[in-house]
């Protein structure tokens, strides 16, 4: 049986490819963790970084990364959701839509540094935001929008038409059908998009160097007044993230423990992303079950 043999062959091939990929991924993550985890300590996580002496930590960078992620999602998620709904549910199949789609894809291929400079000249200088988390979040929105929009659109389109028809048949408006039936069913797919784009936020450096800046001024974590320049909540203060910190330490760092700081930070980044992914997934599953009453 020829078909059977090629079936076996193909299966074997696919398993081999997967094995290779798994090997690479494990090697990579293992490499980062093995070289980084030994440098981790409570002290490392809770002290501010140092300019030239050994023993600096990453307290502010860690917080900045998380804060930046939240701000970016607040800005980009609603827009992407609206756009995704438009593309999946309302968009007519004509050249305008097709141009829109192409434009979104082009947006995602812009090199970070170009977006960074655009953000710098427009937001930091022109709109006088200064080097700030907000400017950084807006710049990151440029990367996130295409990914998120695309993802939301695909997840919405993947929901069977049957569900739409059922909604309409029940007399619901198409908006109600979309938000009440289609959207909940698409939650897991949308979540993947959010997680992927969150990863991009954590990992981005080039665009942030020119927008959120590369210095981490001393923060006061007891100051809840978001207007105060010292406050950790102020969206208008410059903020160096973990990824930028790694870049900076390796490019121009003169601390004697560059390797420790750089590898340690990388390990922290991986662990943070892991925690974020797992908790987002758990939350998403719960949300999915609740919204679709599948349990």
């Amino acid at each position: 049986m020829n078909a059977k043999r090629s079936d076996h062959l193909a299966t074997g091939l696919i398993y081999t490819f997967v094995a290779i990929v798994v090997l690479i991924l494990f090697g990579l993550i293992g490499y980062i963790l093995v070289s980084g985890v030994p440098h981790l300590s409570w002290h490392f996580l809770t002290t501010p970084s140092k300019a030239f002496a050994a023993g600096g930590g990453i307290r502010d960078q860690l917080f900045n990364s998380l804060y930046l992620l939240i701000l970016t999602l607040i800005i980009s998620f609603p827009i992407a959701l609206g756009a995704g709904i438009y593309l999946a549910e309302y968009a007519p199949d004509n050249w305008v839509t097709s141009v829109m789609r192409t434009a979104i894809e082009v947006l995602s291929s812009l090199p970070s540094v170009v977006v960074g400079l655009f953000g710098y000249l427009l937001f930091v200088i022109q709109f006088q935001m200064g080097f700030s988390i907000l400017a950084g979040a807006i710049a990151l929105t440029f990367f996130n929008l295409p990914l998120l929009t695309r993802n939301i659109e695909t997840s919405l389109s993947a929901v069977p038409n049957l569900q739409r028809e059922a909604g309409i048949a029940l007399g619901l408006s198409s908006w109600k059908t979309t938000t009440g039936i289609i959207l909940p069913a698409a939650v897991p797919g949308i979540l993947t998009g959010v997680i992927l784009s969150a990863g991009r936020v954590f990992g981005e450096a080039a665009a942030l160097i020119y927008t959120a800046g590369q210095s981490a001024p001393v923060l006061n974590y007891g100051n809840w007044n978001a207007f105060d320049p010292n406050s950790f909540l102020n969206p208008l203060r410059p903020a160096e993230t973990l990824a930028v910190h790694i870049w900076k330490v390796n490019a121009e760092g003169i601390v004697p423990d560059i390797d420790a700081v750089s590898n340690g930070t990388a390990a922290v980044l991986i662990i943070v992303i892991l925690i974020f992914n797992i908790s987002a997934r758990m939350l998403g599953n719960r949300l999915y079950n609740k919204l679709t009453s599948s349990k």
Binding site: L71, I74, F77, F127, M129, A226, F227, P235, L236
Partner: peptide, 20 residues
């Protein structure tokens, strides 16, 4: 949630203006 997010966004922009 969309409305909330949008108003948050507006708020943020206003905050920016004042903060400056």
């Amino acid at each position: 949630s969309i409305t909330i997010a949008l108003s948050l966004l507006t708020l943020l922009i206003i905050v920016t203006g004042c903060g400056n």
